[in-house]
Design a protein around this nucleic acid. Structure first.
Ligand code: MN
Ligand code: MN
Ligand code: MN
Ligand code: MN
Lengths: 236, 236
DNA sequence: AAATAATGTTAGGCAAATCTAACAAATATT
DNA sequence: AATATTTGTTAGATTTGCCTAACATTATTT
């Protein structure tokens, strides 16, 4: 059985590696900053989790999760996102309020509770921020990581998720009138500072590059331009 | 802010005093047994909670909650019972499974969550075991503490709650076919060992005194016999 | 009243998770 | 290459919540 604290370290490592596509692993300081702790503390825990065979750690190297560590971390993420969905869908929390409470709820230990909750919510695929909810087998599907910042002028794309879950950013997104699944029309982009003008539901807004980098989108217009079939291992 | 552990001590004291009508307070050993800890540990915590003005404690004396301690403890009980109701009503948990999970959920800190949950459940008055759910102001109403064991032969009474929340007892109650709000007809009682014969929903069962002592009932037949109005402070 | 049993307290210790301060290694800058 | 900066490690200390073992007090029997 993992402690509340150990679960948080595993989750942090998952976010710092797999989710960010950072294949080499996370550094001790990086981990400490992410968890709001001192590097010395993170260092102790990395050694402890290595002992438990949940983390691969070598002195002065980058750390990453073992298969077992990743499984456990994914389960914490699954619980986090199911609870966020519950709070949002059933208890009418705003999307900028769910994360904080889910940080606590994700540590409740009861297989049955998670499965029943999943069922009660109708086996949702995504949480209120558009993030994929891992399935009961602990598998986490990856999704488009393309951001609005990379979108082409004149294309119409769909907002699928937000990258930053901080309440301040989410409230700002609300203010702009953007919601998951909305269609965004990119009207223009200033070459100097990448300031974009967009239109959503008939409303025009100017958004900074920092803002645009935190909106994950998918775009049919782009997909048509690219070849549809990525024939990996086609030969052989 | 209270720790998980401190909350458990306050809740234990509430259960050992107010709920059991034990006005003088609870002893250190008693508290330790209730929490599955050693007396030395409970002793440390009593001193700590006295410092925080949540508990009244004197060396070699009985301990009890201060007004503030009682308020906080009642809030934990409120959360526990709301979560039990959620698990039972919304997630289809059996009544013998809810307690264990609620022991964890009761420590989640979010005023908004509790209020929203209460609303979502339709402001329930009782949990799946028939226990009163304290209101949002932290007030806990008292209810009948009369047990089936004290019931009169030939009377018909209503099962309002169970005293023992252990899964083994609750499953036994299921087996007898008893549920909250069922009408119990007391058919007979053996003077030697108080073994009772009862009838519920057309089904007859023999129950031990130990069993009967853990079924809380209310009885119209008895209430009619007694005077209805208890004129406290009638004079003056 | 004395002996016994039950209950409660203290001292000292341990493990988990955190910190600070000093030091070491790796990386970046000049 | 030398220096400076960033990153990582170690040692030692602290807090919380728990324990055991010894001792003290209170309650119950005889
Ligand atoms: Mn979140
Ligand atoms: Mn989320
Ligand atoms: Mn319970
Ligand atoms: Mn209950």
């Amino acid at each position: 059985m993992l402690s509340y604290t150990e679960e948080n370290y595993l989750k942090a490592l998952l976010q710092l590696t797999v989710e960010k596509g950072n294949k080499e692993g996370a550094g001790t300081n990086e981990l400490a900053v992410h968890l709001n702790l001192k590097p010395a503390t993170a260092n102790d825990m990395l050694k402890k989790l290595k002992e438990k065979k949940l983390v691969e750690y070598e002195k002065y190297g980058k750390s990453s999760l073992t298969r077992e560590g990743r499984r456990l971390a994914t389960d914490v993420v699954r619980k986090h996102r199911l609870w966020e969905t519950f709070l949002f869908e059933k208890l009418a929390f705003a999307w900028d309020e769910v994360h904080e409470v889910a940080e606590q709820l994700e540590h409740i230990q009861s297989k049955k509770l998670v499965d029943k909750l999943d069922e009660f919510l109708g086996f949702p695929g995504f949480d209120p921020h558009g993030d994929v909810i891992p399935n009961a087998r602990g598998e986490l599907q990856m999704r488009s990581t393309k951001t609005l910042h990379e979108e082409v002028v004149n294309h119409r794309c769909t907002m699928v998720a937000v990258k930053d879950n901080a309440a301040s950013f989410l409230q700002y997104v609300n203010q702009v009138g953007l919601r998951i699944n909305d269609t965004i029309h990119v009207l223009s982009r200033q070459p100097y500072d990448d300031l974009m003008e967009i239109e959503v539901n008939g409303k025009k807004s100017s958004i900074s590059s920092r803002f645009a980098e935190n909106i994950v989108v998918s775009c049919k217009d782009c997909d048509i331009a690219k070849p549809k079939i990525k024939s990996l291992n086609a030969i052989k």
